[in-house]
Simulated assay, not measured.
Amino acid sequence: MFRLAFPLLLAATTVAAPSVAQTLSVDEIRALVTERVSEKDEYRALLQDEDPERSLAAMQIMLGSGDNDLQRMALEQGLFSPNPVVQRTALQSFFASGAVLNVMLEPGEAKDNNYFQRNIASWSGSIDAEGRGHLSLLTGEWDEASSCWLYRTSNGCFVRVSDANVMLNLWNSWWSMKLNESGELTGSGSMPNVATAVTAVAPVAN
């Protein structure tokens, strides 16, 4: 019995050794955290440069970098900027990335209107327990002739972006949307066979 137990114990010790050797000390973890935070601070400093041209250029480069972390950082910086040109640039990058826009529709007085529910269903949406509609809309390619991004699933215009607002084409009607302080597009528009305006909220910032 003792002859069998010793080799087994030795094997178990040998297997466990590498994981012990790979364990980071508290100081090593602290150093890595400091390095990562410092790196992010350097990127934020570029985005917050006092020269508006330099900060805009930094945002554009980071948005087009292909790095998810840098793109997210630059998008948030742009969306919450007081400068409408910077906001527009961030929104254009958001839609140019082929983003999925999740839109919540508040029916208001049309809550009990069957046509509201039918309109949502016709776009493969859903109705929650409070009667609100939910749509997930896929952004397609940019159409130069129509100056809009198309729906990914059709050749129809989906969205146009300007310094003043974002226009969403829903049910063949253009809905005017603006960014709020939470990084959400908010606005209202009309639906077929629904007499009252319907409000919409669509998060852009994570």
Rank of each mutant, 00 (worst) to 15 (best):
D51T: 00
I120D: 15
D41K: 08
E53V: 08
Q77N: 15
A121Y: 12
G98M: 04
W123M: 15
V100T: 13
L101N: 00
Q117K: 14
G108P: 02
D67P: 01
H134P: 10
G98Y: 01
Q77K: 11
V86N: 10
E144P: 09
E53D: 15
D69A: 15
I61A: 10
S93F: 01
D143P: 00
G98W: 02
S81A: 06
D69F: 15
R36M: 09
G78M: 13
I120S: 13
R30F: 05
L46T: 08
S147C: 08
L56I: 08
T153F: 14
L150N: 07
W149P: 05
F94M: 01
M73H: 03
S126R: 12
S124W: 12
S154G: 09
A110V: 08
T153N: 14
L105G: 07
N119K: 05
S38P: 06
G66D: 00
E130S: 13
E76H: 09
Q117G: 10
N102F: 04
N102I: 06
E42R: 14
L63R: 04
K40C: 09
Q77D: 07
S122T: 11
R36H: 11
R44W: 14
C148G: 03
L137K: 04
Y151S: 11
Q117N: 07
A110S: 15
S97Q: 13
Q60S: 04
A31Q: 06
D49F: 06
A96L: 11
F80Y: 13
